[in-house]
């Protein structure tokens, strides 16, 4: 089963994943029409700024066992084993924020959504673009990511690639192999700027 993998060292903080996510979770599924919808569609992936202005796409890890699922009072949170995805049922959600307290990654937000009863605030988070996957599409955040910070692949493949990358850094005769050269340079410059400004 393919899953979304985050490569934080490659994130430039462009936030295109957020726009794509919001539009994928809108009625119209179209970025321009989505911006006119009520309630306004919102992203379920959250790009934050690190200490040195580097980006980090924070999204639901779909943990197993999921702390939010265990903490959910009305039993609105469930796990779909086939897609390894944790879902929140907007009809059962009571907006108690118990899941916000349980989520170790802080990825759950509370707002109105077109899938929820009108006017009702509910807990909202990443659903791995379940509907898109059923339609044969990959998750919207991955589709739109230009820097390779998000990929959709078999976890085993991603891990093998990473293991190889790390292994190459200790090969004989190699001084240092940078895993993401351009991004490291960019982050180094950002870091310098911030430290100079202080």
């Amino acid at each position: 089963m393919k899953e979304v993998v985050v490569h934080p060292e490659r994130c430039v903080g462009c936030m295109q994943c957020m726009a794509a996510c919001a539009s994928a979770h809108s009625r119209s599924k179209n970025l321009f029409l989505a911006s006119l919808e009520t309630p306004r569609p919102r992203a379920r992936v959250h790009v934050g700024v690190g200490l040195y202005n580097e980006g980090f796409p924070n999204r639901c890890r779909h943990c197993d066992p999921a702390p939010c699922l265990l903490a959910c009072l009305p039993g609105a949170i469930s796990r779909n084993a086939e897609k390894n995805t944790v879902f929140i049922d907007p009809n059962r959600c009571i907006n108690c924020a118990s899941c916000a307290m349980a989520c170790p990654f802080g990825v759950i937000r509370y707002h109105e959504d077109f899938t929820a009863p009108p006017g009702k605030t509910v807990a909202v988070k990443c659903d791995n673009c379940y509907e898109r996957q059923l339609a044969g599409l990959i998750p919207a955040c991955v589709e739109v990511c230009k820097s390779g910070a998000l990929s959709f692949e078999e976890k085993a493949d991603a891990m093998k690639r990473k293991t190889d990358e790390v292994a190459r850094t200790v090969s004989a005769g190699v001084a240092q192999v940078d895993l993401a050269p351009g991004f490291t340079l960019l982050n180094a410059i950002k870091r310098q700027q911030i430290e100079l400004a202080r």
Binding site: L51, P67, A97, P104, G106, I108, Y110
Partner: peptide, 24 residues
């Protein structure tokens, strides 16, 4: 603004040493 409270909760629960600036 409690959305990220779970992160703090889990820092307490896991007794993670905090090396980042506390003010952040």
């Amino acid at each position: 603004a409690i959305e990220q409270g779970g992160v703090l909760m889990s820092l307490i629960q896991s007794e993670t040493p905090i090396r980042a600036p506390r003010e952040a």
